[in-house]
Design a protein around this nucleic acid. Structure first.
Length: 437
RNA sequence: GCGUCGGUGGUAGAGUGGUCAAUUACAACAGACUGUAAAUCUGUCGCCUUAGGGCUACGAAGGUUCGAAUCCUUCCCGACGCA
């Protein structure tokens, strides 16, 4: 992996650059399509590519449970397995510590609606009896599979081993995404844990890289020697490049607290194992929307400028502008595809819910000047019809448009940095988007 | 024509004397969704309401009863059987 900054946003942290991987170049800032289970839900790789996507992100925890990371390894890595020819990333499972743990069965998510700080940081109450599928142990997290109830203990080492098998170009350190309802004391403890886990993730990553673990281990599950497979299907150069250039990003946490965020940015960027550092950084956490820009800014002022930063799990159009302005290079978010499947569609004038009555006889495309496959070929009326009829194509057409909308937006923002008109473009776009709908 | 069974809110279909404006599902309408436990979830769903309640409703009309979607009578409609 090789990251270069092409142009900086004057007076701000923002920048446009390129991130080279053996599977292709990512032009940053870029939006990463989320394909948790090695598929962008409802889309095939051609549709994902045609929407403008450069890179996709799978998930360690989900692929470990199903089909199993060794299967993905034996298939030739996540890219080959899912027929995605471009760059790939995998998340570490750290988000599942949150979504299946503290957030399980509760009305809290990545972005909390609670804005009152006294509600955000209450006295910590013991809810250890509350049902949850993830429990934090001494040096890892115990997960109860949502698929079959089996128990799995994931440590930083385990997460890195799984990700090595999955074989993405960029992988993430195992972290704890904390709930915004935890108090400062807990956030601080969790942060220390995330930092310890980060160091262990990096150490394991280096150990595996030097031992060539993935390439040399035959698969116990299939009994097939993956070396044979690789030789059959790819050149030795490509093979070795795949495994030796896997980049590892450390993850900054710290909730909404300035001191913790800054401390985390400093520690994560300085973690050093045998003279090696993280190749890039993720910014994680669950927080109120209002707190996001300051958190991103605090962190990116400290992270080394020459390495890429990924704002995990974000976001909405306004969040993308905010992140890019504050020095974020990569984003991923389930919204384009999840909203699409659930009937909400992005337009320049705001989101629309395509199942609303008024669209049933609206024979215009979702957006007249949109170049995506859905807009070029179908009407709002037809897409509304597909949703009402619960047809599979509904989610596909909506996801194609939404993914194209968000990916294109980030590309346009990138271009605006290169063209020195970022702020004009931002004002123009958000003026329509936030006030239009 | 005789007999049997049945007619419940947009639909299907519970209920078979008070706890019924009526279970449930679907449809409809509106909303939510930010490193995917998600093609998911939530709310509304007779009319009016100052949200306490009021009014009209279970094919129609009468009746019994303190009280009827529920019991009785007649009528209308449907399915099936016999002529």
């Amino acid at each position: 992996m090789n990251f270069k900054i092409e142009k900086k946003l004057k007076g701000n942290l923002g920048r446009a650059g390129t991130l080279e991987t053996v599977h292709g170049v990512i032009y940053t800032p870029a939006f990463v399509a989320v394909g948790t289970k090695a598929t962008i839900k409802s889309l095939n790789p051609e549709q994902v590519r045609d929407a403008g996507t450069e890179v996709v992100l799978g998930n360690t925890y989900h692929l470990y449970l199903q089909p199993g990371d060794e299967i993905v390894r034996d298939a030739g890595g996540i890219g080959k397995f899912m027929n995605w020819k471009g760059p790939t990333m995998t998340d570490s499972g750290g988000f599942q510590v949150f979504s299946l743990g503290a957030a399980y069965g509760k009305d809290i998510s990545k972005i909390t609606k609670i804005t009152d700080p006294s509600l955000l940081i209450p006295e910590r109450f013991d809810d250890s009896d509350a049902p949850r599928l993830a429990k934090i142990g001494h040096d890892g997290v115990s997960f109860k599979s949502h698929l079959d109830g089996s128990i799995h203990y994931i440590t930083p080492e385990k997460s890195i081993q799984i990700q090595r098998n999955l074989g993405a170009d960029i992988i993430f350190a195992f972290d704890e995404c904390t709930s915004p309802t935890e108090d400062l004391k807990y956030q601080s403890e969790a942060l220390e844990r995330t930092h310890r886990w980060a160091e262990r993730s990096l150490r394991e990553h280096i150990r595996l890289a030097s031992s060539n673990f993935s390439v040399l281990h035959p698969s116990p599950s299939t009994g097939r020697d993956p070396r044979t497979f690789e030789i059959e299907r790819s050149s030795p150069q490509e093979n070795s490049a795949l495994f030796f250039t896997q980049a590892l990003f450390g993850i900054v946490q710290g909730g909404r607290e300035e001191s913790l965020r800054k401390e985390s940015a400093k520690i994560i960027s300085e973690i050093n194992v045998d003279g090696k550092h993280f190749d890039g950084f993720g910014i994680g956490g669950s927080f109120a929307k209002e707190d996001m820009s300051s958190a991103v800014k605090w962190v990116n002022e400290i992270l080394p400028e020459e390495k890429p930063r990924h704002l995990l799990g974000i976001g909405e159009p306004e969040d993308l502008f905010m992140g890019i302005e504050n020095g974020v290079d990569l984003f991923d978010c389930v919204l384009p595809t999840r909203l699409g499947r659930n009937g909400t569609i992005y337009t320049k004038l705001g989101k629309i819910i395509i199942t609303n009555k008024k669209f049933r006889d609206d024979f215009s495309p979702i957006e007249k000047d949109c170049e995506c496959y859905s807009c070029k070929n179908y009407t709002r009326s037809y897409i509304a019809h597909l949703f009402h009829g619960k047809e599979m194509l509904a989610g596909t057409l909506a996801s194609i448009h939404n993914l194209h909308f968000i990916v294109s937006l980030v590309k346009k923002i990138r271009q605006s940095i290169l063209d020195d008109n970022f702020f004009e473009f931002k004002e123009d776009f958000l003026g329509n988007y936030l006030k239009g709908g």
